[in-house]
């Protein structure tokens, strides 16, 4: 196949193509993002209404924030590969796209979805639970690093769950134990910020480090998943 010489290496071009394809089909169907938003709203209102103005400690607030984010991610991100199967495009994608391009393309797409969702959820949390934030950088840092880690792991487990029966419940079962280190750490960091305590910066190193290790391990293992 001949194509124009490009400024970027082939892999980056392919990653961009996968990302563009996913973004376009998402813009048309609006399925994933609307599911994410409505699911997050449902979780949030379930918590917020049942508490209705009661006082929550920063610890509980942080736990709720991350539980809402985790389950929204489980509701919305699992479709990354299932959608290809349902549309019948999986084989074409396998034939024409290098596995690493699919891997990074899907991950970037999921990261974008979850990071934008996390901003929305945080905004609603601040409104509903009357949270006053002193250190915005640390809060956004914890939120985004945690969301990035979650999206990376969820992309890998979605690729595995897509090949099995009972995908959606299996997806949650597979993701939870793997994401736990990041999940616990993100909750703890968020708690520290919400409590107005000084944040230990090494927390962020671990949040980012976990995401990086998951990204590399996933990249190595994805080839085996993709090319059967």
């Amino acid at each position: 196949m001949q194509h124009k010489p490009s400024l970027f290496p082939d892999l980056i071009v392919s990653v961009g193509a996968v990302l563009r394809k996913d973004a376009l089909s998402e813009l048309r169907s609006k399925y994933a993002f609307s599911t994410l938003i409505v699911f997050a709203l449902t979780c949030l209102s379930a918590i917020s209404m049942s508490i209705a103005g009661g006082e929550l400690t920063p610890h509980v607030q942080s736990v709720f924030l991350w539980v809402v984010l985790f389950f929204s991610a489980m509701a919305g991100l699992g479709r990354a590969f299932v959608q290809e199967q349902d549309a019948g495009t999986l084989l074409t994608l396998k034939v024409y796209t290098p596995p690493q391009a699919v891997y990074f393309g899907k991950i970037i797409f999921n990261v974008l979805l979850l990071v934008s969702l996390s901003v929305l959820v945080l905004f609603l949390f601040i409104v509903f639970f009357d949270i006053s934030v002193s250190d915005w950088v640390a809060l956004i840092g914890a939120l985004w690093l945690g969301s990035i880690g979650l999206s990376i792991v969820a992309t890998m487990t979605a690729a595995m769950a897509a090949q099995a029966q009972g995908r959606s419940s299996l997806f949650t079962i597979l993701t939870f134990p793997i994401i736990l280190p990041e999940f616990l750490n993100a909750i703890e960091t968020t708690r520290t910020v919400l409590a107005g305590e000084a944040v230990d910066w090494t927390q962020f190193v671990f949040l980012g480090g976990y995401a990086l290790v998951a990204l590399i391990a996933g990249s190595v293992l994805f080839d085996y998943l993709w090319v059967e």
């Binding site: 134990p177 736990l180 671990f206 391990a217």
Partner: peptide
């Protein structure tokens, strides 16, 4: 995948 990430 679990084996690599869980030691964190």
């Amino acid at each position: 995948f679990a084996f690599v990430t869980v030691p964190f």
